[in-house]
Simulated assay, not measured.
Amino acid sequence: MEIFEELLEHDLNPFILFDSDGKIKKFNKEAEFLMNFVTSKELFSLALEHASKNFGFNKEFTRLQFDKQSYYAILVGYISDNEIALRLFKEVGMIEPVKIDNNFTETNIFTLLEIARNTTLVDSKLKITDIYDVSIPEFKMNINDFLLIINSIFEAAQIYKTLTLKVFIKIGEYEIINNNKYKIVSLEFNTEGTIKIDKSLNYGKKNLINIIKSAHGIKVELPLIV
């Protein structure tokens, strides 16, 4: 493998080469990871949407979000009708050390969910179906930030008739914090449509709480710190 191919393979930004039918010919490690959250068909459609009208390359600065993967620009290029290349540019930021011992308290996530429901949904007609992995142990989190987010989600979900709440540990995904690897606890709130909460609540990410919007609800993810 040539040096430029090695660089592309280990690049922080996902790269995919499609043929004219949308089948993948080449991709790097970042693209492989990205395809855990979005299909190759969707990425091919994205490439066609942003391709230049004539042979050549087109770069646009635009915000793209696939699950918790964020990108700030897209590059699409083709020099024949046989193949088209797509490259996305990942948003990155400085990772600051987290003082887990000072800001986090060990707690039971299911107890907190029950507190939030009893606080927010007292007179609500929202029907909730719980799918819990009860083997999840007590773990450390910023309780105040967590409850603010969960309360807001329950309040916003009341415009719908039903809500499915799934709590589980993700398989094969980890969060790296202070050079330590932690499993990820995911809470999926699935409804008939989107759940919109106050944008200011995204500040919770500084306390390792990720909020991920979807077409049929919203997800909250946090590390399993025991």
Rank of each mutant, 00 (worst) to 15 (best):
F55L: 10
F55T: 02
F57K: 12
F57V: 10
N58W: 01
K59I: 11
K59A: 04
K59M: 08
K59W: 07
E60W: 01
E60R: 09
E60F: 04
E60M: 06
T62M: 05
T62S: 10
T62D: 04
R63M: 11
L64H: 13
L64T: 11
L64A: 08
D67Y: 15
K68N: 14
K68V: 03
Q69F: 09
Q69T: 08
S70G: 02
Y72T: 09
Y72N: 12
A73Q: 07
L75N: 13
L75I: 08
V76H: 01
G77Y: 05
Y78G: 04
S80W: 05
S80D: 13
S80I: 02
S80G: 03
D81F: 04
D81T: 07
D81K: 06
N82W: 03
E83Y: 10
A85S: 10
A85R: 00
L86K: 02
L86P: 00
L86A: 04
R87L: 06
L88H: 02
L88Y: 03
F89M: 06
K90A: 12
E91Y: 05
E91P: 04
G93R: 12
G93Y: 14
M94Y: 14
I95H: 12
I95F: 13
E96W: 06
E96V: 11
E96C: 06
K99I: 06
I100D: 03
I100W: 03
D101C: 02
N102G: 00
N102K: 14
N102T: 02
N103C: 05
N103T: 05
F104Q: 04
F104W: 08
T105G: 02
E106R: 11
T107Q: 09
N108Q: 07
N108Y: 07
I109A: 02
I109K: 01
I109F: 03
F110H: 01
F110E: 01
F110D: 01
F110Y: 15
F110G: 00
F110P: 00
T111G: 01
L112T: 08
E114K: 14
E114M: 07
E114S: 15
I115A: 12
A116T: 12
R117V: 03
N118K: 12
N118G: 15
N118C: 05
T119S: 14
T120F: 05
L121E: 13
L121A: 11
L121Q: 13
V122A: 13
D123K: 13
D123I: 00
D123L: 02
S124C: 10
S124A: 15
K125S: 15
K127Q: 15
K127L: 14
K127G: 04
K127T: 14
I128L: 10
I128P: 02
T129L: 04
D130A: 05
D130E: 12
Y132T: 00
V134D: 07
V134L: 14
S135R: 10
